[in-house]
Design a protein around this nucleic acid. Sequence first.
DNA 1: AATGAATGAGAATTCATTCAT
DNA 2: CATGAATGAATTCTCATTCAT
Lengths: 191, 191, 191, 191
Amino acid sequence: MAVDKREKIVQASIEVFKEKGIEKTKISDIVKRADIAQGTFYLYFPSKLSVMPAVAEQIVLNFMKRIEATVSSEASLKEQLNQLVDAIFHVTGEFRDVSAIVYAGISTTEHITKWETIYTPLYEQVAAILEKNQSRNLIRDTIEPIRTSQLLLGLIESAAEQVFLFNEYEADNEAKQKAELLTFLEHALRP
Amino acid sequence: MAVDKREKIVQASIEVFKEKGIEKTKISDIVKRADIAQGTFYLYFPSKLSVMPAVAEQIVLNFMKRIEATVSSEASLKEQLNQLVDAIFHVTGEFRDVSAIVYAGISTTEHITKWETIYTPLYEQVAAILEKNQSRNLIRDTIEPIRTSQLLLGLIESAAEQVFLFNEYEADNEAKQKAELLTFLEHALRP
Amino acid sequence: MAVDKREKIVQASIEVFKEKGIEKTKISDIVKRADIAQGTFYLYFPSKLSVMPAVAEQIVLNFMKRIEATVSSEASLKEQLNQLVDAIFHVTGEFRDVSAIVYAGISTTEHITKWETIYTPLYEQVAAILEKNQSRNLIRDTIEPIRTSQLLLGLIESAAEQVFLFNEYEADNEAKQKAELLTFLEHALRP
Amino acid sequence: MAVDKREKIVQASIEVFKEKGIEKTKISDIVKRADIAQGTFYLYFPSKLSVMPAVAEQIVLNFMKRIEATVSSEASLKEQLNQLVDAIFHVTGEFRDVSAIVYAGISTTEHITKWETIYTPLYEQVAAILEKNQSRNLIRDTIEPIRTSQLLLGLIESAAEQVFLFNEYEADNEAKQKAELLTFLEHALRP
DNA sequence: AATGAATGAGAATTCATTCAT
DNA sequence: CATGAATGAATTCTCATTCAT
């Protein structure tokens, strides 16, 4: 019974966004998917754009879970980077344009401050990985963990988006992109 | 005399996109800004979405001009990277979220092939800079110029966006971000 | 051809208001009657309530025309009052609740200043009648024409409304109401 | 203890009507103001429109109480009229356009019969005043008390509304309006 | 080529009313 | 009696696009 309606709306939004893209998604699509009445939507969100922060939160959560599950703290730096790239490519691929568009959608929505709050946990998670490797002397101690985790995530995400959005037809392209990216990362971080 | 109307439309689109975001921009906003009649729009573009590629082209052109004007082929690698970062930060700042939004807007439009065509010259311009430095042995010869130029641009743009969108109130933040980014780049590229 | 659309909307609004009352009238009723597209309405009026001032103007115009046509400046004071009462009863009857509701509707609409502007010509028309009779020494010279014309109109309208809205089933009631009203008026104005 | 909920609803309705007008008032506004649950409203009134008669009753009651308290049966006719005008101006001012709006609102609701029932006591109260003065030979014995009380109330109310709605910025206007009105009344009623 | 009023399908939004708790 | 979340029919409103001038 007690299925949180707000939860259902967010979940349904993500699903429909994935399928039709954000611009083409109507409130009516969302409520149909969530199996609630049209008016119920407005009990929880004042407009379509206002679901974005909640959607972003979900996606960030997905990134975090995937990273948590994929990156092994015991592995070598090279392996860890490899795992991190895999994790981010995976989630970016799963959410295709949603991840990119959420970003755009949210920036339109003047919820910029919220945006930072949402992304902070993810930044900290990756920063923690960097710090551990710093203490193992595997990466430069001149790097500032939080700031660099932001660079890392931006770099990897943009690389993933380029693969999924523009070159999606060449199969081996993803492998090449990852390889180039990994070498780039290793060099950037090495002491 | 008569300034090209097509030109005026693209220019007006960019301005309005900057102010209201793409989703909230109406054709009527664009034509008002361009000071032309509603119907005239359709003499130059078949639909609302079809301005996007032209807008993207314009922004890419801005990037290229700025890079051309800022990056000196005589300078040291460090200086060149510095100049490149400055150029990209400058243009990203000028167009605020439009650069990101064009990207999102275009992806919605299934004009993916066009997108690549539009961005290719920019990639090549930066790739050329990399190649020159490769031949000077200042950067690794294992790097693949085009692919790395994409990584570079994605990285620098995302760093710039983070500065302009989220941290825009801390004044010294831009300097710190650039510094961290530069060290990151130098390490990533050095032989 | 050149039928002013704005005009058509106002005309259609009055007709539909008369038939269904203001609260029950939908924009769609108005545009159907006016034989224009739904969107066209919004080209001329931002909302349903915003037609009210224009509707009021029309009704005031009706009052003025009817008074002009009915009241003879040659007639005796008694006759003139009789004619004035007839005119106002007639138009109030024609517009039934619209005249009353326009008044209420307009007050809701914060267009209070406009309201005064709309009614002023009517007040002046009746004031002119009073002045003429003042100069004929048929009515007190202590009365202030404009102010009293307002009282007069308010009194006659409210009497008419009482007849049409509440007592509408008793046929001879109108005659009695008019008779009482006329005696009341004559006494109020006599020197 | 528990203040009668029905009472609270009527009171809250009046307050909200005063502030937003009837058309723009939602049930949710009323229940919020009355500090009860949405559903509770329907325990006391079957529909939104059905509060109107109760609101009208309340306002009529206010008129009656004020008149009762203000008009002294011992005073001279002139004074009594003055007191009556004061009382009506006071209550009309207190309820601003609600008094007018109730009237309009009710008329929409086809509760016409009820309307008469509600107003009758007020008419009779004023008619009684007229009769007393008739028996004192201070006013014409040709006047029909009930009918004239209706005229009187309509006249005074419309005069009051004109003051409060349209001329509300000129301070001395109310005094002038009352003076003109009083002379008008005295003449209308004197034998 | 240029205009801009008109269109109307389609989407967003509202809100009186219900009903399970 | 009281609650207030949920409903969904009804309406308003938007805006890309067309087309007669």
